[in-house]
Design a protein around this nucleic acid. Structure first.
Lengths: 228, 228
DNA sequence: CGCCGACTTGAAGATCCTCAATATGGGTGG
DNA sequence: CCACCCATATTGAGGATCTTCAAGTCGGCG
Protein backbone atom coordinates (compact mmCIF):
# COMPACT_ATOMS: atom_id res chain seq x y z
CA UNK A 1 0.00 0.00 0.00
CA UNK A 2 2.73 2.36 0.98
CA UNK A 3 4.77 1.41 -2.01
CA UNK A 4 1.76 1.60 -4.27
CA UNK A 5 1.40 5.22 -3.29
CA UNK A 6 5.08 5.88 -3.59
CA UNK A 7 5.31 4.53 -7.09
CA UNK A 8 2.64 6.96 -8.11
CA UNK A 9 5.00 9.75 -7.31
CA UNK A 10 5.66 11.53 -10.58
CA UNK A 11 9.20 12.24 -11.64
CA UNK A 12 8.37 15.75 -12.77
CA UNK A 13 10.24 18.76 -11.50
CA UNK A 14 7.18 19.69 -9.54
CA UNK A 15 7.55 16.55 -7.49
CA UNK A 16 11.26 17.14 -7.17
CA UNK A 17 10.63 20.39 -5.36
CA UNK A 18 8.05 18.80 -3.08
CA UNK A 19 8.74 18.80 0.63
CA UNK A 20 10.15 15.55 2.01
CA UNK A 21 7.70 12.87 1.00
CA UNK A 22 7.74 11.14 4.38
CA UNK A 23 6.03 14.23 5.73
CA UNK A 24 3.17 13.67 3.36
CA UNK A 25 2.22 10.28 4.70
CA UNK A 26 1.84 8.92 8.20
CA UNK A 27 5.06 7.27 9.24
CA UNK A 28 3.73 4.35 11.25
CA UNK A 29 1.89 1.33 9.97
CA UNK A 30 -1.07 1.84 12.27
CA UNK A 31 -2.16 4.82 10.25
CA UNK A 32 -2.60 2.96 7.03
CA UNK A 33 -6.33 3.14 7.66
CA UNK A 34 -6.16 6.90 7.26
CA UNK A 35 -3.97 6.82 4.21
CA UNK A 36 -5.75 8.86 1.60
CA UNK A 37 -6.18 8.20 -2.07
CA UNK A 38 -4.04 9.92 -4.64
CA UNK A 39 -5.78 11.93 -7.32
CA UNK A 40 -4.56 13.78 -10.37
CA UNK A 41 -6.03 16.95 -11.80
CA UNK A 42 -5.38 18.84 -15.00
CA UNK A 43 -4.88 22.59 -15.14
CA UNK A 44 -8.03 24.46 -14.07
CA UNK A 45 -9.85 21.31 -12.98
CA UNK A 46 -12.15 21.82 -10.05
CA UNK A 47 -11.15 19.84 -6.98
CA UNK A 48 -14.17 20.90 -4.96
CA UNK A 49 -16.80 23.61 -5.26
CA UNK A 50 -18.00 26.24 -2.83
CA UNK A 51 -21.02 24.92 -0.94
CA UNK A 52 -20.27 21.29 -1.73
CA UNK A 53 -20.35 18.71 1.04
CA UNK A 54 -16.87 18.69 2.59
CA UNK A 55 -16.09 15.00 2.60
CA UNK A 56 -12.32 15.17 2.16
CA UNK A 57 -9.30 17.05 3.37
CA UNK A 58 -6.52 17.33 0.82
CA UNK A 59 -2.77 17.48 0.78
CA UNK A 60 -0.81 18.66 -2.24
CA UNK A 61 1.76 16.19 -3.51
CA UNK A 62 2.88 18.01 -6.63
CA UNK A 63 1.78 21.06 -8.57
CA UNK A 64 -0.24 23.90 -7.09
CA UNK A 65 -3.82 24.54 -6.02
CA UNK A 66 -5.81 27.72 -5.44
CA UNK A 67 -8.76 28.12 -3.09
CA UNK A 68 -11.07 31.04 -3.75
CA UNK A 69 -14.36 32.73 -3.03
CA UNK A 70 -16.56 34.57 -5.51
CA UNK A 71 -18.94 37.49 -5.27
CA UNK A 72 -22.13 37.17 -7.35
CA UNK A 73 -20.81 39.57 -9.99
CA UNK A 74 -17.72 37.45 -10.50
CA UNK A 75 -15.16 39.30 -8.44
CA UNK A 76 -12.84 36.69 -7.03
CA UNK A 77 -10.60 36.49 -3.98
CA UNK A 78 -8.01 33.74 -3.84
CA UNK A 79 -7.42 33.19 -0.14
CA UNK A 80 -4.38 31.01 -0.60
CA UNK A 81 -2.15 29.10 -2.96
CA UNK A 82 -1.33 25.57 -1.88
CA UNK A 83 2.04 24.08 -2.75
CA UNK A 84 3.43 20.59 -2.24
CA UNK A 85 3.08 19.61 1.41
CA UNK A 86 0.27 22.08 2.08
CA UNK A 87 -3.07 20.91 3.38
CA UNK A 88 -6.32 22.50 2.22
CA UNK A 89 -10.04 21.87 2.51
CA UNK A 90 -10.22 21.81 6.30
CA UNK A 91 -13.73 22.77 7.39
CA UNK A 92 -15.52 22.69 10.71
CA UNK A 93 -18.99 22.71 9.24
CA UNK A 94 -20.47 20.34 6.68
CA UNK A 95 -19.71 22.26 3.52
CA UNK A 96 -16.73 23.82 1.82
CA UNK A 97 -16.71 27.60 1.99
CA UNK A 98 -14.28 27.82 -0.92
CA UNK A 99 -13.78 26.53 -4.35
CA UNK A 100 -10.51 24.65 -5.02
CA UNK A 101 -8.95 24.35 -8.46
CA UNK A 102 -5.76 22.96 -9.90
CA UNK A 103 -3.44 25.74 -11.03
CA UNK A 104 -1.43 23.35 -13.16
CA UNK A 105 -1.40 19.61 -13.58
CA UNK A 106 -1.14 18.43 -10.02
CA UNK A 107 -1.50 15.52 -7.64
CA UNK A 108 -3.12 15.53 -4.25
CA UNK A 109 -3.90 13.03 -1.55
CA UNK A 110 -7.52 13.03 -0.38
CA UNK A 111 -8.23 11.98 3.20
CA UNK A 112 -11.78 11.04 4.15
CA UNK A 113 -12.90 13.47 6.79
CA UNK A 114 -15.02 10.89 8.57
CA UNK A 115 -11.97 8.68 8.93
CA UNK A 116 -9.85 11.43 10.33
CA UNK A 117 -12.45 12.24 12.95
CA UNK A 118 -12.89 8.63 13.96
CA UNK A 119 -9.15 8.28 14.27
CA UNK A 120 -8.85 11.03 16.85
CA UNK A 121 -7.75 8.50 19.43
CA UNK A 122 -5.77 6.01 17.42
CA UNK A 123 -3.69 8.08 15.03
CA UNK A 124 -2.42 11.04 16.95
CA UNK A 125 0.20 11.80 14.36
CA UNK A 126 -2.11 12.41 11.43
CA UNK A 127 -4.69 14.26 13.48
CA UNK A 128 -2.04 16.51 14.91
CA UNK A 129 -0.75 17.11 11.42
CA UNK A 130 -4.13 18.52 10.47
CA UNK A 131 -4.29 20.62 13.61
CA UNK A 132 -0.94 22.14 12.73
CA UNK A 133 -2.15 22.69 9.17
CA UNK A 134 -5.21 24.51 10.38
CA UNK A 135 -3.11 26.77 12.54
CA UNK A 136 -0.75 27.50 9.66
CA UNK A 137 -3.73 28.34 7.48
CA UNK A 138 -4.91 30.76 10.14
CA UNK A 139 -1.53 32.43 10.46
CA UNK A 140 -1.26 32.90 6.71
CA UNK A 141 -4.78 34.28 6.46
CA UNK A 142 -4.10 36.76 9.24
CA UNK A 143 -0.87 37.95 7.68
CA UNK A 144 -2.74 38.33 4.43
CA UNK A 145 -5.30 40.59 6.10
CA UNK A 146 -2.56 43.12 6.76
CA UNK A 147 -1.41 42.88 3.17
CA UNK A 148 -4.87 43.33 1.69
CA UNK A 149 -5.95 46.03 4.07
CA UNK A 150 -2.91 48.21 4.39
CA UNK A 151 -0.17 47.55 1.86
CA UNK A 152 0.40 49.36 -1.43
CA UNK A 153 0.43 47.49 -4.73
CA UNK A 154 4.23 47.45 -4.80
CA UNK A 155 4.43 46.21 -1.22
CA UNK A 156 1.89 43.50 -1.97
CA UNK A 157 3.99 42.22 -4.86
CA UNK A 158 7.16 42.32 -2.78
CA UNK A 159 5.54 40.38 0.04
CA UNK A 160 4.10 37.89 -2.40
CA UNK A 161 7.45 37.22 -4.04
CA UNK A 162 9.27 36.81 -0.74
CA UNK A 163 6.57 34.51 0.57
CA UNK A 164 6.73 32.27 -2.50
CA UNK A 165 10.52 32.22 -2.36
CA UNK A 166 10.31 30.82 1.15
CA UNK A 167 7.78 28.19 0.24
CA UNK A 168 9.26 27.06 -3.05
CA UNK A 169 12.57 25.34 -2.50
CA UNK A 170 14.44 26.90 -5.43
CA UNK A 171 16.91 29.55 -4.39
CA UNK A 172 16.46 33.04 -5.77
CA UNK A 173 14.84 32.02 -9.02
CA UNK A 174 11.10 31.67 -8.75
CA UNK A 175 9.03 29.59 -11.14
CA UNK A 176 5.53 30.88 -10.67
CA UNK A 177 2.91 28.22 -11.22
CA UNK A 178 0.08 30.77 -11.37
CA UNK A 179 -1.06 33.36 -13.89
CA UNK A 180 -1.15 37.13 -13.44
CA UNK A 181 -4.89 36.84 -12.97
CA UNK A 182 -4.40 34.46 -10.06
CA UNK A 183 -1.80 36.73 -8.50
CA UNK A 184 -4.09 39.74 -8.93
CA UNK A 185 -7.03 37.93 -7.34
CA UNK A 186 -4.83 36.89 -4.45
CA UNK A 187 -3.45 40.36 -3.78
CA UNK A 188 -6.60 42.37 -4.39
CA UNK A 189 -5.26 44.01 -7.54
CA UNK A 190 -5.81 43.85 -11.30
CA UNK A 191 -3.54 41.99 -13.69
CA UNK A 192 -2.40 45.29 -15.18
CA UNK A 193 -1.28 46.58 -11.81
CA UNK A 194 0.54 43.33 -11.09
CA UNK A 195 2.30 43.61 -14.41
CA UNK A 196 3.25 47.26 -13.88
CA UNK A 197 4.59 46.60 -10.38
CA UNK A 198 6.74 43.75 -11.63
CA UNK A 199 8.00 45.98 -14.43
CA UNK A 200 8.82 48.68 -11.92
CA UNK A 201 10.70 46.26 -9.68
CA UNK A 202 12.66 45.11 -12.69
CA UNK A 203 13.52 48.67 -13.68
CA UNK A 204 14.78 49.23 -10.14
CA UNK A 205 16.90 46.06 -10.56
CA UNK A 206 15.20 44.43 -7.59
CA UNK A 207 14.08 41.49 -9.73
CA UNK A 208 14.88 40.13 -13.15
CA UNK A 209 12.26 38.51 -15.35
CA UNK A 210 13.68 35.70 -17.42
CA UNK A 211 10.16 34.91 -18.57
CA UNK A 212 6.74 36.05 -17.43
CA UNK A 213 6.65 33.30 -14.85
CA UNK A 214 10.36 32.94 -14.16
CA UNK A 215 11.58 35.64 -11.84
CA UNK A 216 14.98 36.11 -10.21
CA UNK A 217 14.98 37.92 -6.90
CA UNK A 218 18.19 39.87 -7.43
CA UNK A 219 17.87 42.09 -4.39
CA UNK A 220 16.03 40.41 -1.56
CA UNK A 221 17.07 43.17 0.83
CA UNK A 222 15.18 45.71 -1.25
CA UNK A 223 12.17 43.41 -1.31
CA UNK A 224 12.39 43.00 2.43
CA UNK A 225 12.40 46.77 2.84
CA UNK A 226 9.11 46.86 0.98
CA UNK A 227 7.78 44.00 3.02
CA UNK A 228 7.01 46.02 6.14
CA UNK B 1 -14.86 29.30 43.18
CA UNK B 2 -17.69 29.37 40.72
CA UNK B 3 -19.59 31.84 42.80
CA UNK B 4 -16.52 33.95 43.32
CA UNK B 5 -16.29 34.40 39.60
CA UNK B 6 -19.98 34.89 39.20
CA UNK B 7 -20.17 37.66 41.73
CA UNK B 8 -17.55 39.48 39.73
CA UNK B 9 -19.96 39.62 36.86
CA UNK B 10 -20.71 43.26 36.26
CA UNK B 11 -24.30 44.42 36.03
CA UNK B 12 -23.59 46.74 33.16
CA UNK B 13 -25.56 46.53 29.96
CA UNK B 14 -22.48 45.15 28.32
CA UNK B 15 -22.63 42.15 30.58
CA UNK B 16 -26.35 41.86 30.05
CA UNK B 17 -25.80 41.35 26.35
CA UNK B 18 -23.08 38.79 26.96
CA UNK B 19 -23.67 35.28 25.74
CA UNK B 20 -24.92 32.81 28.35
CA UNK B 21 -22.42 32.93 31.14
CA UNK B 22 -22.32 29.17 31.59
CA UNK B 23 -20.71 29.02 28.18
CA UNK B 24 -17.89 31.12 29.46
CA UNK B 25 -16.87 28.66 32.11
CA UNK B 26 -16.44 24.92 32.10
CA UNK B 27 -19.59 23.30 33.42
CA UNK B 28 -18.12 20.45 35.40
CA UNK B 29 -16.25 20.66 38.66
CA UNK B 30 -13.23 18.78 37.36
CA UNK B 31 -12.30 21.73 35.21
CA UNK B 32 -11.89 24.14 38.06
CA UNK B 33 -8.16 23.76 37.55
CA UNK B 34 -8.50 25.44 34.18
CA UNK B 35 -10.77 28.20 35.41
CA UNK B 36 -9.14 31.40 34.32
CA UNK B 37 -8.73 34.62 36.22
CA UNK B 38 -10.95 37.59 35.53
CA UNK B 39 -9.26 40.84 34.56
CA UNK B 40 -10.55 44.32 33.92
CA UNK B 41 -9.13 46.80 31.45
CA UNK B 42 -9.87 50.44 30.83
CA UNK B 43 -10.44 51.88 27.38
CA UNK B 44 -7.30 51.60 25.22
CA UNK B 45 -5.42 49.50 27.76
CA UNK B 46 -3.07 46.99 26.21
CA UNK B 47 -4.01 43.39 27.00
CA UNK B 48 -1.00 41.95 25.27
CA UNK B 49 1.59 43.23 22.81
CA UNK B 50 2.78 41.90 19.48
CA UNK B 51 5.84 39.73 20.00
CA UNK B 52 5.15 39.18 23.68
CA UNK B 53 5.30 35.66 25.11
CA UNK B 54 1.85 34.15 24.63
CA UNK B 55 1.12 32.84 28.10
CA UNK B 56 -2.65 33.24 28.12
CA UNK B 57 -5.69 32.72 25.98
CA UNK B 58 -8.52 35.16 26.63
CA UNK B 59 -12.28 35.17 26.55
CA UNK B 60 -14.27 38.38 26.53
CA UNK B 61 -16.82 38.66 29.33
CA UNK B 62 -18.01 42.21 28.73
CA UNK B 63 -16.98 45.11 26.56
CA UNK B 64 -14.98 44.78 23.36
CA UNK B 65 -11.39 44.06 22.35
CA UNK B 66 -9.46 44.69 19.15
CA UNK B 67 -6.48 42.67 17.92
CA UNK B 68 -4.22 44.35 15.38
CA UNK B 69 -0.95 44.33 13.52
CA UNK B 70 1.21 47.33 12.65
CA UNK B 71 3.54 48.18 9.80
CA UNK B 72 6.68 50.05 10.79
CA UNK B 73 5.33 53.36 9.51
CA UNK B 74 2.26 53.05 11.72
CA UNK B 75 -0.31 51.71 9.28
CA UNK B 76 -2.59 49.43 11.25
CA UNK B 77 -4.78 46.48 10.38
CA UNK B 78 -7.34 45.34 12.93
CA UNK B 79 -7.87 41.68 12.13
CA UNK B 80 -10.89 41.29 14.38
CA UNK B 81 -13.11 42.79 17.03
CA UNK B 82 -13.86 40.51 19.95
CA UNK B 83 -17.23 40.72 21.68
CA UNK B 84 -18.58 38.98 24.78
CA UNK B 85 -18.15 35.23 24.42
CA UNK B 86 -15.38 35.54 21.84
CA UNK B 87 -11.99 33.97 22.42
CA UNK B 88 -8.78 35.66 21.32
CA UNK B 89 -5.05 35.24 21.77
CA UNK B 90 -4.82 31.66 20.49
CA UNK B 91 -1.30 31.04 19.18
CA UNK B 92 0.53 27.94 18.06
CA UNK B 93 3.98 29.39 18.50
CA UNK B 94 5.47 30.98 21.60
CA UNK B 95 4.64 34.60 20.94
CA UNK B 96 1.62 36.69 20.10
CA UNK B 97 1.53 37.87 16.51
CA UNK B 98 -0.93 40.61 17.37
CA UNK B 99 -1.45 43.37 19.80
CA UNK B 100 -4.70 43.26 21.82
CA UNK B 101 -6.29 46.34 23.33
CA UNK B 102 -9.49 47.15 25.18
CA UNK B 103 -11.86 49.16 22.98
CA UNK B 104 -13.86 50.27 26.00
CA UNK B 105 -13.85 49.33 29.64
CA UNK B 106 -14.04 45.60 29.50
CA UNK B 107 -13.61 42.35 31.36
CA UNK B 108 -11.94 39.20 30.14
CA UNK B 109 -11.09 35.79 31.53
CA UNK B 110 -7.46 34.78 31.10
CA UNK B 111 -6.68 31.06 30.79
CA UNK B 112 -3.10 29.92 31.29
CA UNK B 113 -1.98 28.31 28.08
CA UNK B 114 0.21 25.79 29.85
CA UNK B 115 -2.80 24.61 31.83
CA UNK B 116 -4.96 24.22 28.77
CA UNK B 117 -2.34 22.12 27.06
CA UNK B 118 -1.79 19.92 30.10
CA UNK B 119 -5.54 19.40 30.33
CA UNK B 120 -5.84 17.95 26.84
CA UNK B 121 -6.82 14.62 28.32
CA UNK B 122 -8.83 15.56 31.37
CA UNK B 123 -10.97 18.50 30.30
CA UNK B 124 -12.27 17.76 26.86
CA UNK B 125 -14.93 20.39 27.10
CA UNK B 126 -12.66 23.38 27.54
CA UNK B 127 -10.10 22.15 25.06
CA UNK B 128 -12.78 21.59 22.47
CA UNK B 129 -14.12 25.04 23.17
CA UNK B 130 -10.78 26.49 22.14
CA UNK B 131 -10.61 24.31 19.05
CA UNK B 132 -14.00 25.61 17.99
CA UNK B 133 -12.86 29.15 18.75
CA UNK B 134 -9.80 28.71 16.56
CA UNK B 135 -11.93 27.46 13.72
CA UNK B 136 -14.33 30.38 14.09
CA UNK B 137 -11.38 32.77 14.04
CA UNK B 138 -10.20 31.16 10.81
CA UNK B 139 -13.62 31.39 9.17
CA UNK B 140 -13.93 35.06 10.06
CA UNK B 141 -10.44 35.84 8.82
CA UNK B 142 -11.14 34.09 5.52
CA UNK B 143 -14.40 35.94 5.01
CA UNK B 144 -12.57 39.14 5.78
CA UNK B 145 -10.03 38.42 3.04
CA UNK B 146 -12.81 38.65 0.47
CA UNK B 147 -14.00 41.90 1.98
CA UNK B 148 -10.56 43.51 2.04
CA UNK B 149 -9.49 42.26 -1.34
CA UNK B 150 -12.57 42.67 -3.46
CA UNK B 151 -15.31 44.76 -1.91
CA UNK B 152 -15.95 48.46 -2.43
CA UNK B 153 -16.00 50.89 0.47
CA UNK B 154 -19.79 50.88 0.60
CA UNK B 155 -19.93 47.10 0.50
CA UNK B 156 -17.36 46.89 3.26
CA UNK B 157 -19.46 49.10 5.50
CA UNK B 158 -22.62 47.14 4.70
CA UNK B 159 -20.94 43.83 5.51
CA UNK B 160 -19.49 45.27 8.68
CA UNK B 161 -22.84 46.51 9.93
CA UNK B 162 -24.62 43.25 9.16
CA UNK B 163 -21.87 41.26 10.82
CA UNK B 164 -22.03 43.34 13.98
CA UNK B 165 -25.81 43.13 14.02
CA UNK B 166 -25.56 39.36 14.10
CA UNK B 167 -22.98 39.30 16.84
CA UNK B 168 -24.47 41.97 19.09
CA UNK B 169 -27.76 40.78 20.52
CA UNK B 170 -29.70 44.04 20.13
CA UNK B 171 -32.20 43.98 17.29
CA UNK B 172 -31.81 46.51 14.52
CA UNK B 173 -30.21 49.22 16.62
CA UNK B 174 -26.46 48.91 16.83
CA UNK B 175 -24.38 50.45 19.58
CA UNK B 176 -20.90 50.51 18.16
CA UNK B 177 -18.25 50.12 20.81
CA UNK B 178 -15.46 51.20 18.45
CA UNK B 179 -14.37 54.48 16.93
CA UNK B 180 -14.36 55.39 13.24
CA UNK B 181 -10.59 54.93 13.31
CA UNK B 182 -11.02 51.35 14.49
CA UNK B 183 -13.63 50.65 11.84
CA UNK B 184 -11.39 52.15 9.15
CA UNK B 185 -8.40 50.08 10.26
CA UNK B 186 -10.56 46.97 10.24
CA UNK B 187 -11.99 47.56 6.76
CA UNK B 188 -8.86 48.89 5.06
CA UNK B 189 -10.27 52.41 4.67
CA UNK B 190 -9.76 55.88 6.13
CA UNK B 191 -12.03 57.41 8.74
CA UNK B 192 -13.23 59.94 6.18
CA UNK B 193 -14.35 57.23 3.80
CA UNK B 194 -16.10 55.38 6.62
CA UNK B 195 -17.90 58.57 7.54
CA UNK B 196 -18.89 59.31 3.97
CA UNK B 197 -20.19 55.81 3.35
CA UNK B 198 -22.31 55.93 6.50
CA UNK B 199 -23.63 59.32 5.39
CA UNK B 200 -24.47 57.91 2.00
CA UNK B 201 -26.29 54.93 3.48
CA UNK B 202 -28.27 57.29 5.65
CA UNK B 203 -29.17 59.47 2.68
CA UNK B 204 -30.41 56.34 0.92
CA UNK B 205 -32.49 55.58 4.04
CA UNK B 206 -30.73 52.26 4.52
CA UNK B 207 -29.59 53.23 8.00
CA UNK B 208 -30.41 55.94 10.48
CA UNK B 209 -27.78 57.47 12.75
CA UNK B 210 -29.21 58.38 16.13
CA UNK B 211 -25.70 59.26 17.26
CA UNK B 212 -22.29 58.65 15.75
CA UNK B 213 -22.11 55.25 17.41
CA UNK B 214 -25.80 54.42 17.54
CA UNK B 215 -27.04 53.19 14.21
CA UNK B 216 -30.41 51.80 13.22
CA UNK B 217 -30.42 49.31 10.36
CA UNK B 218 -33.66 50.46 8.75
CA UNK B 219 -33.32 48.39 5.61
CA UNK B 220 -31.45 45.17 6.14
CA UNK B 221 -32.50 43.91 2.73
CA UNK B 222 -30.68 46.76 1.07
CA UNK B 223 -27.62 46.07 3.21
CA UNK B 224 -27.80 42.42 2.28
CA UNK B 225 -27.86 43.36 -1.38
CA UNK B 226 -24.60 45.20 -0.87
CA UNK B 227 -23.19 42.29 1.08
CA UNK B 228 -22.47 40.14 -1.91
C1' DC C 1 -20.64 76.52 30.04
C1' DG C 2 -16.73 75.50 27.62
C1' DC C 3 -13.27 72.51 26.09
C1' DC C 4 -11.39 68.70 23.58
C1' DG C 5 -11.60 64.55 21.24
C1' DA C 6 -14.39 62.37 17.78
C1' DC C 7 -16.76 62.87 13.78
C1' DT C 8 -18.26 65.14 9.43
C1' DT C 9 -17.77 67.55 5.20
C1' DG C 10 -15.37 69.66 1.29
C1' DA C 11 -11.85 70.15 -2.29
C1' DA C 12 -7.80 68.55 -4.45
C1' DG C 13 -4.77 64.78 -5.48
C1' DA C 14 -2.81 59.93 -5.79
C1' DT C 15 -3.24 55.32 -6.52
C1' DC C 16 -5.19 51.95 -8.75
C1' DC C 17 -8.68 50.53 -12.22
C1' DT C 18 -10.76 50.32 -16.86
C1' DC C 19 -10.53 50.08 -21.58
C1' DA C 20 -7.84 49.39 -25.54
C1' DA C 21 -3.99 48.26 -28.31
C1' DT C 22 0.26 45.78 -28.73
C1' DA C 23 3.76 42.36 -27.61
C1' DT C 24 5.42 37.83 -26.13
C1' DG C 25 6.05 33.08 -26.19
C1' DG C 26 4.67 28.30 -25.45
C1' DG C 27 2.40 24.76 -28.07
C1' DT C 28 0.86 22.68 -32.30
C1' DG C 29 0.79 21.33 -36.88
C1' DG C 30 2.72 21.50 -41.29
C1' DC D 1 12.45 22.57 -37.25
C1' DC D 2 10.05 26.44 -38.30
C1' DA D 3 6.03 29.26 -38.52
C1' DC D 4 1.87 30.36 -37.04
C1' DC D 5 -1.57 31.00 -33.46
C1' DC D 6 -3.78 32.04 -29.44
C1' DA D 7 -3.68 32.59 -24.66
C1' DT D 8 -1.09 35.37 -21.58
C1' DA D 9 1.17 39.34 -20.50
C1' DT D 10 2.60 44.21 -21.23
C1' DT D 11 1.97 49.00 -22.03
C1' DG D 12 -0.55 53.32 -22.59
C1' DA D 13 -4.19 56.80 -21.81
C1' DG D 14 -7.98 58.26 -19.32
C1' DG D 15 -11.05 57.83 -15.40
C1' DA D 16 -13.08 56.32 -10.80
C1' DT D 17 -12.53 55.45 -6.21
C1' DC D 18 -10.48 56.33 -2.31
C1' DT D 19 -7.05 59.18 0.20
C1' DT D 20 -5.07 63.38 1.88
C1' DC D 21 -5.27 67.75 3.69
C1' DA D 22 -7.98 71.20 5.76
C1' DA D 23 -12.04 73.30 7.98
C1' DG D 24 -15.74 72.88 10.31
C1' DT D 25 -19.40 70.58 13.61
C1' DC D 26 -21.00 67.74 17.20
C1' DG D 27 -21.39 66.08 21.72
C1' DG D 28 -19.76 64.10 26.03
C1' DC D 29 -17.56 65.34 30.27
C1' DG D 30 -15.20 68.23 33.40
Amino acid sequence: MDTALLTKRPSSTAAAIARPFHELRPANATSSLAAGSVRSYAKDDEIFADGQRAAYVYKVVSGAVRTSKLLIDGRRQIDAFHLPGDIFGIESDDDYRFCAEAIDNCMVVAYRRSQIESLSGTDTQLVQQFAVAMMRTLVRAQNHLLLLGRKTALEKIATFLLDLAERLPAGDTLDLPMSRTDIADHLGLTIETVSRCLAQLEKRAVIKMLAARRIVLSDKTALQRLND
